[in-house]
Design a binder for these strands. Sequence first.
RNA 1: GCGCGGGUGGUGUAAUUGGUAGCCACGAGGGACUUAAAAUCCCUUGCUCUAAAAAGCGUGCGGGUUCGAUUCCCGCCCCGCGCACCA
Length: 803
Amino acid sequence: MQRYNPKEFEQKWQDIWDETGVYTADLASDKPKYIAMSMFNYPSGAGIHIGHAMNYTISDVKARYKRQQGYESYHPIGWDAFGLPAENYAIKAGVSPQESMAQIIPSYHKQYKAMGWSNDWEKEIATHLPEYYKWTQWIFWKMHEQGLAYQDARMQWWCEKDATVLANEQVIDGKCWRHDGPDDPLVQKKEVKQWFFKITEYADELLEATDALDWTESVKLAQKNWIGKSQGAEIDFKIDGSDDQLTVFTTRPDTLYGATFMVVAPEHELLDSITTDEQRNEVEAYKKAAQLKSELDRLAEKEKTGVFTGAYAINPVNGQKLPIWTADYVLVGYGTGAIMAVPAHDERDEEFATKYDLSIVKVIEGDKLVNSGEFDGQIIKLAQENIVNMLADKGHATPKTNYKMRDWSVSRQRYWGAPIPIINCPEHGAVRVPEADLPVILPELDDFQPSGDGRSALARATDWLKTTCPECGGPAERETDTLDTYICSSWYMFRYFDPRNQQQIFDPEIVNKWAPIDFYNGGDHATAHLLYARFVTKFFHKLGIIKHTEPFKQMLYNGKVTASDGSAFSKSKGNGIDPLEIINSGYGADALRTYLMFAAPLEFSARWDPQGVPGTHRFLNRLWTLTQEYLEASAGDTTKEQDKDLKRVTHQTIKKMTEDLERNTYNTAIATAMAAVNDLYKLKAQALAQSPEWKEALEALIACVAPFAPHTAEELWHQLGHSTSVHKDSWPTYNEEYLVQDTITLAVQVNGKLRGEVQVAADADEATAVAAAKANQKVAGYLEGQTIRKTIYVPNKLVSFVV
RNA sequence: GCGCGGGUGGUGUAAUUGGUAGCCACGAGGGACUUAAAAUCCCUUGCUCUAAAAAGCGUGCGGGUUCGAUUCCCGCCCCGCGCACCA
């Protein structure tokens, strides 16, 4: 008998699948389509880790299941190749990102194949190739054309030594990642001109479409909070002794009479002009301090701070003079960057008022207004409208909807990204590169250090940089910013349907057939990536190149794999698990895949259990042994009684596993397969022959296990005599008639407590069941001398007596 | 602080509509095979009491609804994750 040794056949089948192209999707097929995919991968030198193994196996199982069910199933593959790590590596090691990617990506091919993932390699994409980023640039081009791309200044982290912008993750403990010695300076903040996409124009549309999505609920909620819609009003406060006015946003205009001071953010544009001379030094010092604080410092700060500006604002409802303060608990990026403070009804304002001894006026009691002039006694809700209307009539207020979400900052002062297709002309400003000239090719460099003038290394590629203005033909320079990599990943799912198209971003006809993505999963990016992808899809829809308005039909936000103690795996701890090591140690990819899908529900984080893979390996070994014994058994029939049991086990297993795969409860699907193997072992002990019933039982089980353990299933499938792959059109269907049992067990309760069990014929009626229950010796003991007040009968479940 | 999950054996978990709590697996114990070990196969395994049976207890805690609650309602405790001063 052959022993179960995955090393002997996993690689063999991977090669055969490659050669025969079983996983190549025919996008023109007449079959119903299905596309399952996981969020794509950033290829780093470290190779795949156990988290990748988890993520991609989830979508692979789904794609395989659907392929077996007869769908034209597509499990695409691509690389999110632009990004900071490759650039950092280039700066430190001097290896160009192009070169590292050319080495890293092929090594990923091997690793993905070793995992047994059913990717369609013919349609592979990579975001750093000109054939791809041409269309990333085109999206910017179209956004600009449609008035959805604009430039504005924003504060950025800045390293004085390199004279360059830093990303958040390049700031470590307040210092630049490359200059973190004791003598190195803290990072600064500097205003830098950036490109933005007007995602806020789509805020309502995105918000309203969220509820209907078949997505993990927590992600939908995170998106709604991220968009952060709130209704309120903007109210103008005149500044005492000046023509200026201070506009604030509030969701509680009903508390206007309780406003006792105003607060503006340290970055507020009016701060300098309203500050009085006496207060100027203090305000300047506070502004500087706020600017220097790292985000960590601000977070760590428990106590609120602030300084008085010396200025006063006039409350438009009652003419009261309110002192204007500046404090960093008011954020410049939200609302108008200024608030009216109502300490009686806002915790933060109260804390501030108490600390600085500012007055507190209560204006709400119960649900009614007090101390509010003509509005006294009004219900809160009504008063909100009335106060805004009254002020609006005088031109002091505007009803306003506010969003937490801000426009998408899409430019990066980086080399390793898609160049922004803009030419800066001294005459005509920022001019789009003519559409026909796309892509703007990223020039190859030797030195990837930032240029030293705040621009990326691209500023040194002088041949590339110097060009002519498309408008006037005069000398001009290319934009040296590159595009945020979130743009690359906001549209890649559609490129999968037409990856080699040179004429357009994709053929709308193919995309309209294949979109949306039927199944998408990942354990990250609950907001940014998923929201950007939705935004870009809606943009494409407006452009008329796609009929859908949402990219992902179903989205599963899966849990992570953690160390045995529940902590995250980390490089510094060196406690990572290498999937390839486990495969090569002899357990094979199938046991690893099956364990990952079995350990916990997909939405939960799964703790790594060193005994887990040996456990699933044992299960696959049992299935293997069973098949070998069947192959060695003699032809013939088994008893009618056994055939019935075989049929029942087989069809129950098919039913349960089909349902579980459909609703993404993979762990219980695998438990069902394990139970089936156990049942078949018991039946085997009675008799094993090459009967049609045994053949059906094994084939069905092997087909149902195939999504999880594709190599083992394929090997056994062929051993059973098939010449075509188990991975296409092999999913068995179940027949209800085999599920019924002759006798069933009913629970018998007395006063809600279980007192016995009785066997009755499956088709027994209520009277028979109740009689059988009463006849049970133990139950009779409890019923003796009692009056049965009520009898409850639940078919197939129980009989319950109330005495 | 706010929001979202979750709390079930020694452990990961299951229980799909309010109906026999603990499927499946890990671990543990026992047995078979073996010179031996590994592997494999079989059995036991929520707790208490017990030789066993029987009985009692048991899904974070306290109440409630119900013939019957892991499931529904009210109040509380704890853990994890996300966002973090959002006016």
